[in-house]
């Protein structure tokens, strides 16, 4: 059990890093030929950093767009942030103090994720416009996340698993000293689905995570008169005059 999972973990991690890295490389190296920030837009890099922070921390544009989607989306993502930090205790020894200090928040983070996902899924099913634009993968993605969060919460509240053993497995992965893993169904489901998530991440709409940082309508400065922007095309269609 431990060995199979160890191999799967390495494979999924390599795929995740390589495929995601390639995608990010593609975004970073494709030119943005014209100045296209959605205006009003900041005129300086500092302003762009502020806009981007508001976008990824507060979901500023989504807030303007739809309050319900914003609420559920924000609950889900910030629940996830808490849970990810909380989970760092499985890979740190001794546990970093800032990770230890938020352990009590973990279950609430999980619940926030659950509520967020449920709300988003209900919208997807109930609002006719959102139902129209949804395809199977949109529902499966929500199902996958619900199952990961659900199995996690089940371990917290219903069938506790041997987390000391889980931690030694995780630390073993890092140190290349493979250890066994508990075989309780919740932990197996939780980990298998997390691996699935890592594998599909670079090939799915989860690319919105790196994508937002490369969005030219959000990361460009509004200064075309002050500074000449060039297309960045290798064979520039217009020679310098």
């Amino acid at each position: 059990m431990g060995i199979i999972f160890s191999v799967l973990f390495y494979a999924a991690s390599v795929l995740f890093v390589v495929a995601l890295g390639r995608r990010i490389f593609k975004y970073a190296t494709t030119p943005a030929p014209l100045v296209i920030p959605t205006t009003p837009a900041p005129m300086t890099w500092l302003g762009v950093i502020g806009r981007m922070l508001r976008e990824v921390v507060f979901f500023e544009s989504l807030f303007k767009g739809n309050k319900w989607t914003w609420l559920f989306g924000w609950l889900f993502h910030f629940g996830m942030l808490i849970v990810l930090v909380e989970h760092l205790r499985y890979v740190s020894e001794p546990v970093w103090f800032w990770v230890a200090s938020i352990q009590w928040l973990g279950p609430y983070g999980g619940m926030a994720m659950f509520v967020g996902l449920a709300g988003l899924w209900v919208r997807r099913l109930v609002v006719d416009r959102v139902r129209y634009i949804s395809v199977l993968s949109d529902h499966l993605m929500l199902g996958l996340m619900v199952a990961i969060v659900g199995s996690g919460l089940v371990m917290v509240y219903v069938f506790p698993t041997d987390i000391v053993m889980v931690k030694s497995f995780m630390l073993g992965l890092i140190k290349f000293d493979w250890q066994p893993l508990p075989s309780d169904p919740p932990v197996v489901v939780h980990l298998v689905l997390t691996l699935v998530l890592m594998i599909i991440f670079p090939f799915s709409k989860l690319l919105h995570a790196p994508g937002v940082f490369f969005s030219p309508t959000r990361n460009m400065r509004d200064n075309p008169r002050e500074r000449r922007h060039t297309t960045g095309w290798r064979s520039d269609a217009h020679p310098e005059k």
Partner: peptide, 18 residues
């Protein structure tokens, strides 16, 4: 290959409906 907006926009949409 020539407009970054395209791969980023085509990949990133999560169908949130906003």
């Amino acid at each position: 290959k020539t407009y970054r907006s395209l791969p980023v926009f085509l990949d990133s949409c999560v169908k949130c409906g906003a």
